[in-house]
Design a binder for these strands. Structure first.
Length: 789
RNA sequence: GCGCGUAUAGCUCAGUUGGUUAGAGCGCAUCCUUGACGUGGAUGAGGUCAAUGGUUCGAAUCCAUUUAUGCGCACCA
């Protein structure tokens, strides 16, 4: 199939997209006995309304390696998942349909809306990934809310429950009062906020002495349950065993000592409440303190808040401060900036309330989970420290129940009479307890669990969910653990940690052997690309302007794990590379018209051997680099080979041979054609993982006529390095001087404003070696009448 | 506060285990319409490798301290 005269990017990319889809070349071969390379593809949140260059970057970077592996002869399993349940989708639907209060809509109605939005989101992603040429097997897709995923997610729950790793406890739990749901440690975010440190007066019940404490949360005064000071603080020894009267609410609290109290903070007296932070909870547990929870799940104050009952916790601080002032009990206010933990999704500062929730016991397994993380192959290595930091700082067990609508139901019932916890049989999964009665029970005897599972409960099973997409169980077993998990560093503490945890608890294994961690996209000023800032060009637009290959080329622009700035110049460079490749292809086509590859290589000239030696080196380097997930290194090596070795030198230096139609020039011409053929074919393959479209175009156009076996460059074999293609040291030295002569002639012409194509009479070069056998070649190639030493 | 990164040409970034004159692309200057390509080509200018000190025959690279900046964790009564 001859090449067009011009490469129409948009049209040709669309053509190849269709071709690949029709030929199904990215499909996992269930019957093959080739080694498997399986990818645990990140399932993106489908509620993302706009995809940005950051998404392009991370998915492309992983995909370069996947394409490489496919060409290396692996049977690639590359599924795609979509994370569609959980808060983000609910929020999205609430916003879009202006649902302020969930009571105004039934659970099933609401879930239906979520599913509809999910489908739209999936379509958006799918369109963009196709546009970009992401080579996933679209017949292997899942969404985290579909039956398949629910089944595995609920199985995970059952398995952990049976292993005793899962418990239901009534515990203080981090709570989002605006979304009214429990949160896990990872759902939190730090937020710098301006506030005041308030010095407030308590009164000693015994002596009437004023006891001043400092707090940033005066609204929790009605929830105060104790005062503490350091056991060695001489100022307060006389208070041991006495009580203090709380201002405003008037209740009394014990005065106790604890080593963790900082003598130098404020007055050295500390108020403990139900519960301002994790320290409060720790002391509450340690000293078995009273529980004075003053608000409910919506943040509404109860009778313990006295006169304030019925109000909202968020407004209480202001009211209490005013009342304290009136009573002269607020002695000082110091403005401070401090870090407040807020819910990542709502931005609301977290509160603690007491509820019954399901927890996975991770804290007591910290050490083992750290060990598991150590066993993974991290690319780049340093990313392990983020994992290690996180695991060793774990304070809370993983709360997996959420008081939401759109999620995988917790597969549990409670027996009305006995209170017994009832779980279904595995073959009953997936179940919605609110609509299903487990075998052997009567609906009227059971209370169904209403809560759903944390969305990470499902996505942490992604390797198993992916592996389960094939038709037979034996194959599923081969697909787990996965070969590769590509992901961004922001979700090491969530997705990665939870997946490692699950694989360890369920199968006592790692979920995958390699982890490839990408950085994130930055705008051209170095700010993180985000939906909120809107600081990005939609990828669809960039692709329309420059092509998918150019966009992908940009994604190679930095080493793995580094952030990358969106830079239109880099994309232009990608487009130029595509253009240059096309033109080189056209040149090759012109000169390979009647050429067929002979069984035996013709006798090559030094320059032919040189470019093949360069090719050989690059094959070795690119292969090693891709193996190490160093696509950047591979790309620059290939760029060098193409631009700096081939187009700058080789191509220009052999033109005269290709145009030579005289009988005595035929051997030389054949050698050049042979070299050109071998070189271009390998070069295209080297570029194929990064630039799948243009390489397919040229591969099909130049090499596929007589080759019916490989339908696509992307299923062809990765080029092998060839030991025959090596220069001896002597040849190497000769080439160095030959290229120096080339440069000298070019410099001479350039400095004298002579066109390179114009023949000059003579040129005198210097070399310590005997270049006389090559003078003729150089003279012809460089258009010099006579070349002299 | 602890930990992990980053700092190299005007801009965006490479630089493997320390080894001649530190690289690329873009931008800039001068020139060339050569038969794949003007979305091109040739030549060239441009760097105290954040700072200081040290190890070494030799340091962008190793060590120490410092500065700037990003991230993770902790603190945050």
């Amino acid at each position: 199939m001859p090449l067009e005269s011009k490469y129409e990017i948009t049209e040709r990319e669309a053509h190849w997209r269709e071709f690949w889809a029709k030929q199904n070349i990215y499909a996992f071969d269930e019957t093959s006995d080739k080694p498997i390379f399986s990818v645990d593809t990140p399932p993106p949140y489908v509620s993302a309304d706009h995809l940005h260059p950051g998404h392009i970057m991370s998915y492309s970077q992983a995909e370069f390696v996947v394409r490489f592996k496919r060409m290396q002869g692996y049977n690639v399993f590359y599924p795609m998942g979509f994370d569609d349940n959980g808060l983000p989708t609910e929020r999205h639907v609430e916003k879009k349909y202006k649902i302020k209060n969930k009571d105004s809509i039934s659970r099933s109605e609401f879930v239906k809306l979520c599913l509809e939005e999910t489908q739209k989101g999936i379509q958006t992603y799918r369109n963009l990934w196709s546009l970009l040429g992401i080579s996933v097997d679209w017949s292997k897709t899942y969404s985290s809310i579909n039956t398949h995923s629910q089944k595995i997610s609920q199985w995970s729950f059952l398995d952990l429950y049976r292993k005793g790793l899962l418990t239901q406890r009534e515990d203080p739990i981090m709570w989002d009062i605006s979304f009214q749901s429990a949160l896990a440690q990872t759902d939190l975010e730090d937020s710098e906020q301006d506030s005041h440190l308030n010095d407030i007066v308590f009164t000693s019940q015994e002596s009437g002495e004023q006891l001043i404490i400092a707090t940033t949360r005066p609204e929790l005064l009605p929830a105060a349950v104790a005062l503490f000071f350091h056991p060695e603080d001489s100022r307060y020894q006389h208070l041991i065993g006495t009580k203090a009267i709380t201002p405003i609410s008037g209740h009394t609290v014990p005065i106790l000592t604890d080593e963790t109290v900082d003598k130098d903070f404020g007055t050295g007296l500390m108020m403990v409440c139900t519960w301002g932070d994790s320290e409060d909870i720790a002391k509450w547990k340690k000293y078995n303190l009273e529980t004075r929870l003053i608000f409910n799940q919506k943040g509404i104050l109860n009778e313990l808040a006295g006169n304030y009952a019925g109000g909202h916790i968020i407004k209480l601080r202001q009211l209490i401060l005013e009342d304290l002032k009136k009573q002269n009990l607020l002695v000082k206010q110091t403005p401070i900036t401090h870090t407040v933990q807020v819910s990542e999704r709502s931005g609301t500062p977290i509160e603690f309330i007491l509820t019954k929730q399901w927890f996975i016991n991770v804290v007591e397994h910290k050490e083992e989970l750290l060990e598991q993380g150590k066993k993974l192959h991290w690319y780049p290595k340093r990313m392990f420290s983020i994992y290690a930091d996180w695991v060793s700082s774990l304070k809370w067990d993983w709360c997996i129940s959420r008081q939401r609508y759109y999620g995988v139901p917790i597969p549990v019932w409670y027996h009305k009479q006995t209170g017994e916890i009832i779980i279904p049989q595995e073959d009953e999964l997936p179940v919605d307890p609110t609509e299903y009665t487990p075998r052997g029970y009567k609906a009227e005897d059971l209370i169904p669990e209403q809560d759903v599972l944390d969305t990470w409960m499902t996505s942490s099973m992604s390797p198993e969910i992916g592996a389960g997409l094939v038709s037979n169980p034996e194959l599923t077993a081969k697909l787990f653990p996965s070969s590769l998990r590509p992901q961004a560093f922001e979700i090491i503490r969530t997705w990665l940690f939870y997946t490692v945890t699950k694989a360890y608890f369920h199968h006592n294994t790692l979920p995958f052997s390699d982890v490839m961690i990408s950085g994130h996209g930055l705008d051209n000023q170095g700010r993180k690309i985000s939906k909120r800032l809107g600081n990005f060009t939609p990828p669809e637009q960039t692709i329309a302007n420059y092509g998918a290959d150019a966009m992908r080329y940009w994604a190679t622009g930095t080493t793995l794990g580094e952030n990358i700035r969106f830079n239109e110049e880099e994309i232009k460079k990608g487009k130029k590379t595509v253009n240059k490749l096309f033109n080189a292809g056209k040149f090759a086509e012109m000169h390979l018209q009647n050429f067929t590859l002979p069984d035996q290589a013709p006798e090559l000239e030094l320059i032919d051997k040189w470019i093949l030696a360069e090719l050989n080196q690059t094959i070795t380097l690119a292969t090693e680099s891709f193996e190490q997930y160093e696509y950047y290194k591979a790309r620059t090596a290939i760029d060098q080979l193409f631009w700096n070795k081939f187009t700058d030198y080789y191509l220009e230096l052999i033109k005269y041979r290709l145009y030579d139609e005289t009988p005595e020039g035929q051997n030389s011409r054949l050698a050049a054609q042979y070299t050109l053929y071998v070189y271009i074919k390998s070069l295209l393959k080297l570029y194929a993982p990064i630039l799948p479209f243009i390489t397919e175009e040229l591969y099909q156009g130049l090499f596929l006529e007589n080759n019916t076996q490989n339908t696509s460059i992307h299923t062809s074999n990765w080029p092998q390095s060839n030991t025959a293609w090596q220069l001896s040291e002597e040849e190497n030295n000769l080439m160095t001087d030959i290229l120096a002569v080339v440069e000298a002639v070019r410099a001479y012409k350039s400095q004298n404003s002579i066109s390179l194509g114009k023949e000059i009479e003579s040129f005198t070069y210097t070399s310590t070696q005997d270049l006389s056998p090559y003078e003729n070649f150089l003279a012809k190639a460089l258009r010099v009448g006579k070349l002299m030493k």
